[in-house]
Design a protein around this nucleic acid. Structure first.
Lengths: 250, 250
DNA sequence: TAGTGGTCTAGACCACGTG
DNA sequence: ACGTGGTCTAGACCACTAC
């Protein structure tokens, strides 16, 4: 039309997004509620389809809404797992391998799948930390209540774990840390590096993450009392499913 | 034209994005390099402007590229600050208030601005943890090398800090923790909760964050030896500028 | 079958930064 | 002045979901 677009204000799609966001944050639209769809926004605001779409894309990329094809756009819901850094790794927990994850999920049911144990040539930081490029890697995926929440890849020096149950699918009672202890390499100290970034497409697919969901990346290194690094564990967590907690003294 | 679109494969804009991503991750396009722009992609792939744009939007939302109006789209660069959880808060650091941040930035120059100290009615979790809704709040923004990297809001019970330098802009040598110590409320234990999410528009603006950059949210509570919560500090970190490190024993 | 979101085209005008 | 990304329109066809 000939209506002057009146710029210098915030663009239309942003103002539509702002109004919808306000309704979500104020609670007027609650968890799982349906947002007005593309057609509804076209009618309500008299804009083209692409503009309505752009407004919804803002909320989707902010992680506030999730689109479902053929159905609609819905307010996102959160149910974080509390992952307690230091406490979960205290020695007492090793008695039973499941204890660590039971601690995290507070009893909610979880599963492990896509477990693959392979021997590999390590590169870059892993080789540097472990002091060798000959490593065994244990990769797996954790799901809670049927939803995948974490990918993990634990690296171990081949010289230490070769020929032990750590290279088998089933590591036995107490898990890897119990086996390392029996080998005289019990972890005594840990360092965790925490980052956040957007997932790559393959990561988003494995974790079934909707758009607008960051990844929490944790690189954990386990050291023996002698200061030898015996494990490099890279974990990728769906940030919508996790809260990390760290306790320490002054 | 009449060329059949051949669906059931991944859409055009995704395949364009995949090719560009590959060049970025492989290093063929390095930090700060210019990507082919909208016009270039239109010519190269014979697609409409909106499709080329959509391909670039994928990379931008993944945090791999940054658009600059009037100039082009560029490969994103990273220069993280290492923020060391426990060590930076050890008592020895309090002797000089600047020490904590010097530790984080490893000597890189930083500034604090937008400092506001206000008395407020606390709500929700803050009031619950501090055991009162009468609080003083110290809000400020940290920048490193001229780029804003963190917003922080520290909450203190008014009954403890009222009338002390903690309610002034300048808290004196050693900072807030030194003053709390003099008041008989020296922090002895800390807990930090770490989350990641996409920033809201006002948060993204204050931190000058480009699209596709998650926020790291840290809620830190300081407890005295007697177990009294004396500080609730909510920090919002630009995830492109930070790596968190936590050390602990088994 | 009707409605939803997903992809794509072919135009247009604008604000902005670099030359 | 020119090319860049930013916004917007008005169509179209598709795949999927719900009824």
């Amino acid at each position: 039309m000939t209506e002057s677009p009146v710029h210098h204000e915030s663009p239309i799609y942003r103002r539509i997004a702002d109004r919808l966001r306000e309704q979500i944050l104020s609670g007027a639209l609650g968890d799982g509620d349906r947002l007005p769809g593309e057609n509804a926004l076209m009618n309500e605001y008299g804009v083209a389809r692409a503009t309505a779409r752009q407004a919804l894309a803002v909320l989707i990329n902010e992680g506030l809404a999730v689109p479902r094809r053929g159905s609609g756009v819905y307010v996102r819901l959160f149910r974080p797992i509390r992952r307690h850094g230091p406490r979960r790794l205290s020695r007492e927990q090793w008695g039973d391998g499941r204890a660590i994850w039971d601690h995290d999920t507070m009893g909610r049911p979880y599963t492990v799948d896509e477990l693959r144990v392979t021997r590999e040539k390590a590169g870059g930081r892993v080789a540097e930390v472990l002091g060798t490029d000959e490593v065994w890697v244990r990769r797996r995926r954790y799901s809670v209540e049927g939803r995948p929440v974490q990918l993990a890849a634990s690296h171990y020096p081949a010289a230490i774990v070769g020929g032990t149950p750590i290279t088998e699918a089933d590591t036995g009672p107490g898990g890897v840390y119990a086996r390392l202890g029996e080998l005289g390499h019990a972890p005594a100290r840990f360092t965790e590096e925490v980052r956040a970034r957007m997932p790559l497409p393959n990561e988003a697919k494995l974790l079934e993450m909707p758009a607008g969901t960051p990844l929490i990346v944790i690189d954990r290194i386990a050291y023996t009392a002698a200061g030898v690094a015996v494990e490099y564990n890279e974990m990728l967590l769906d940030s919508a499913s996790y809260v990390l907690q760290y306790d320490f003294d002054a």
